[in-house]
C-alpha cells in the first residue's frame, strides 16, 4: 500500500524511493499471465511430452524410449495424413488468402456503401459454433438429397459424391474451411488496407496508373507484412486442422481426408494409445515451428 502514498506525494521535488520501478514492473505485468501459463499450459505440455516416451502395457505406463517416435517413421498412415495436410496447406490457404484480399479491397473501395453490413456478413461464418455449421454442411453436401447437388442439377451437373469420393471429399473439406475462415482473414486484410496512406494512391492516380496496376504495385507490397501474418496463422491453423474433417468425413473415405491431428485423436481417444498420440503431437509442433520460422525468415530476406 505504501507506494500508493509515495505516488501521491510525488508532486514535490523530493524523489522518494519507489518500490515499483521500470526495472521490476514488467515482471508484475507478466506475472498473472505467466502463472496461468505455467500451471495450465506448461505443466500439461511437459506431462504429455513425457508421455510420448512411454507405452502402455497391461494398464500401466512403462518407459519406452524413442520407440513411439521410431514407430512414427514407419507409419504409412502418418505420412498419408501429413501429405493430406500439406496438400490442403498448398491449395486451400492460397485460395483463401487471395479471396480474402480481393474481398477486402472491394470492401475498401469508396464506391461501396453499407460497409458494416458486408463486413458482418462475411465475418459470420467464423463465429459459428462448429457443432452447428457441421450439421448444416453435412445435410447440404449430401450426395442424394443435398441442397448443393440439387442446385447443381439446374446446370445439368450430375450429383457429386461430396463426402464419399476421395477427390471430392478433399474438395468439400477445403470448401468448408474456406467458407469458415475467408471472412476472418478478410477482416485482417481490411485492417491492413486502412493503414495504407491514401497519398500513395493519389500519386499513382496522377501518374495515370490503372486500378489493377495500383493493386499490384501499391496494395500488394504494402500488405506484405499482413500476408505474412495471415499466412503464418493459416499455416498453424491448417496443420492443426481437426474440426472439419472430424465432423464432415471422419478422415475418410479411405483416409483421403485424414489430417495429422485427426490421426492423433484416433490414437489417443479411440485406441487409447496416448503415448503414440503425444509423439505425433510433438513431431507436429516441430514441423509447425520449422515452417513458421522459415516463412518469417523468407519474408525477412526479401525485404
Amino acid at each position: 500500500m505504501s507506494q500508493l502514498k509515495a505516488e501521491t506525494q510525488i508532486n514535490g521535488k523530493r524523489q522518494r524511493k519507489r518500490w515499483i520501478t521500470p526495472k521490476n514492473v514488467p515482471y508484475l505485468f507478466i506475472l498473472p499471465a505467466l502463472t496461468f501459463f505455467m500451471i495450465f499450459t506448461v505443466y500439461p505440455v511437459i506431462s504429455s511430452l513425457l508421455l510420448s516416451f512411454q507405452k502402455r502395457e497391461g494398464g500401466e505406463y512403462v518407459f519406452a524410449g524413442l520407440s513411439n517416435y521410431a514407430r512414427l517413421f514407419q507409419d504409412e498412415l502418418f505420412f498419408k495424413a501429413l501429405g493430406n495436410t500439406f496438400l490442403i496447406l498448398l491449395i486451400q490457404v492460397p485460395i483463401q488468402l487471395f479471396l480474402a484480399v480481393v474481398i477486402a479491397v472491394a470492401l475498401n473501395s469508396q464506391m461501396v456503401k453499407l460497409k458494416g453490413f458486408f463486413r458482418v456478413s462475411f465475418f459470420m461464418p467464423a463465429i459459428t459454433a462448429l457443432v452447428a455449421s457441421s450439421i448444416i454442411f453435412m445435410i447440404m453436401l449430401d450426395e442424394n438429397y443435398g441442397l448443393v447437388n440439387y442446385l447443381l442439377s439446374f446446370f445439368g451437373i450430375e450429383p457429386i459424391a461430396w463426402l464419399s469420393d476421395p477427390f471430392w471429399a478433399k474438395v468439400a473439406l477445403m470448401v468448408a474451411i474456406t467458407w469458415r475462415w475467408t471472412g476472418y482473414n478478410m477482416v485482417i486484410f481490411l485492417a491492413g488496407l486502412q493503414n495504407i496512406p491514401g497519398s500513395l494512391y493519389e500519386a499513382a492516380e496522377m501518374d495515370g496508373a490503372g486500378k489493377l496496376r495500383q493493386f499490384f504495385y501499391i496494395t500488394v507490397p504494402q500488405l506484405k507484412p499482413i500476408f505474412l501474418f495471415t499466412f503464418v496463422l493459416s499455416t498453424i491453423g491448417t496443420l492443426q486442422l481437426f474440426d472439419e474433417p472430424y465432423i464432415l468425413t471422419e478422415g475418410g473415405p479411405n483416409n483421403s481426408t485424414l489430417t495429422i491431428t485427426l490421426y492423433l485423436y484416433q490414437h489417443g481417444f479411440k485406441y487409447f494409445d496416448f503415448g503414440y498420440a503425444s509423439a505425433i503431437a510433438y513431431i507436429l509442433v516441430l514441423i509447425i515451428g520449422v515452417l513458421s520460422w522459415g516463412q518469417m525468415k523468407l519474408a525477412g530476406e526479401n525485404d
Binding site: I135, M138, I139, L141, D142, E143, N144, Y145, A161, W162, L163, S164
Partner: peptide
C-alpha cells in the same frame, strides 16, 4: 446400392423413399 454420407444421409434416403 445408394451410397450415402453418414447417418444423415441414410435417414434422408429413408425419408425420401429412394
Amino acid at each position: 446400392v445408394l451410397n450415402n454420407d453418414g447417418w444423415n444421409g441414410v435417414v434422408s434416403a429413408t425419408v425420401n423413399g429412394e
